[in-house]
Simulated scan of single mutants.
Amino acid sequence: MTWTSAFGKGSGWLLQKIVNGLALTRISPNALTFIGLVINIIAACFFGFARPNNANRMFLYAGLIIIGAGVFDMVDGRVARKTNQVSVFGAFFDSVMDRYSDVAIFFGLLIYYARGNRLFYVGLVAFVMTACVMVSYTRARAEALIGTCKVGFMERPERIVCVILGALCNRWGVMAPALWVLALFATLTVIHRIRYTYVETERRKKLITQTK
């Protein structure tokens, strides 16, 4: 169990209360998913419009807003199950909106560093954004071939928590190390999933050959 999933389990009582309240409104889970995207875009705007003289405050606001968006990300699936609105399209829509949310957040950071002429960090954020997208892409492609591929540490909850910590603690220069952590562990997760998929496909190929 990852530490983010442990936190989610510990906060289950509060989440269930929120889910029960939203279920009474009969709101569409897809609407909740889309609201989460909109909130993340607002957070990205705080990153993008930050200036050196107000960056700590703007990053703090962005971090708090991302936490708010995370609530919607945690409850949309639960509301779907509570109201019997679970669907294949809903799972697809949630995944697509998550990717847009991730890109929006990193795009906001990219704009911030670009406006400050910090070209090295522009490149770093661009690399992190690509690596995080590839974490999700490798899982999707692998699961189309081998059924399941949940290996690797840097899942979306871990990535979001890393960004939140960087934003909330930017006053102490935490965002830069957070980006390095994301770059390293997202890349390692991609490599792990590539290797895992290779091993699984080779194993299945040998099983097919042996049964012939």
Rank of each mutant, 00 (worst) to 15 (best):
G63A: 10
Q85T: 04
A69S: 12
G70Q: 09
G68F: 12
D73I: 05
K82W: 06
A69N: 12
L64C: 09
V88E: 15
V96G: 08
Y61Q: 02
M74I: 08
M97F: 09
G63D: 14
I67Y: 14
G70F: 15
V86H: 02
V75M: 04
R78N: 06
I65R: 04
V88F: 09
V71T: 14
R81E: 04
M97H: 09
I66Q: 12
D76A: 03
V75Y: 02
G68K: 08
T83A: 01
I66R: 07
L64A: 13
I66K: 07
R78W: 00
I67M: 12
N84V: 00
G70L: 14
T83Q: 05
F89Q: 11
D73W: 05
S95P: 06
F72E: 02
G63P: 04
V96W: 10
A69G: 11
K82C: 05
S87P: 04
V75L: 03
F92E: 12
V79I: 04
R81Y: 07
D94H: 14
I66H: 09
A62G: 14
Y61M: 08
I67V: 15
A62W: 07
N84D: 11
V86D: 06
D73H: 07
M74A: 11
G70V: 13
G90P: 01
F93I: 11
M74S: 13
F92M: 14
G77P: 00
F89N: 12
A62N: 08
A80C: 01
